[in-house]
Amino acid sequence: MNHAYDVSHLLAGLMLVASFALLYQDRIFAVLNIFAAQAVLLSMAVGWEAWTQQRPHLFVTAALALGLKGIVIPVALHKMIVRLGIHRDVEQVVGVGKTLMAGLALTSLSLLLVLRITTAAESFTREGLALALAIILLGFLMMISRRNAVTQIVGFMSLENGLILAATGARGMPLVVEISVAFSVLIALFVFAVFVFRIRERFDSVDVEALEDVRGDHR
């Protein structure tokens, strides 16, 4: 069984690397490519779990990760960006260096926290959970450190990759497939919202900063 652990750790580790790579991209297409790569890695990790845990229905989650998040959404966002003419640099609220330092701190936090409190659990669950929590926290960091609506969506989707990884890593957890479908609906709605509400048309930019002008803090 040892190489079953090794492979899933390798895939989860690569997903974490992709999360870090997302943090320092300064071009919006690069962000989409790396996110697609992370989704492909997720589908491989979930597929591997489906095979080793002998839970064939997890292949549905794997296929969903590959098809929707690996191909359809990146392509749709790519087209949308070209059509809206916003393929410029990603504006960052916090500098790259500081963001990466914060990312390192969050990763060590999740490793220290999860490994310490789950001493009773099986070794795979522990490490898989630690890596998944790190991916989730890095997703949060990406949502906070970018101002662009598209990169906020990508940050959320990367966070959700971590959640699916954690759910499939928890051996025998029921409803994972249903929940991953529910999450896909959520994400599709996100993209749909940007499309339909046409944030750009109304605000002349997808910069979330433009929305700040109409916020109601003083009402």
């Binding site: 949502m143 906020q152 966070l159 996100f190 916020r215």
Partner: peptide, 20 residues
């Protein structure tokens, strides 16, 4: 309206983070 979209977006982001 712009303010309705802003409210909706904010609710979307914060609500999804809470849900996650």
């Amino acid at each position: 309206t712009p303010s309705a979209l802003e409210a909706s977006w904010k609710y979307f982001i914060l609500g999804s983070v809470g849900i996650s």
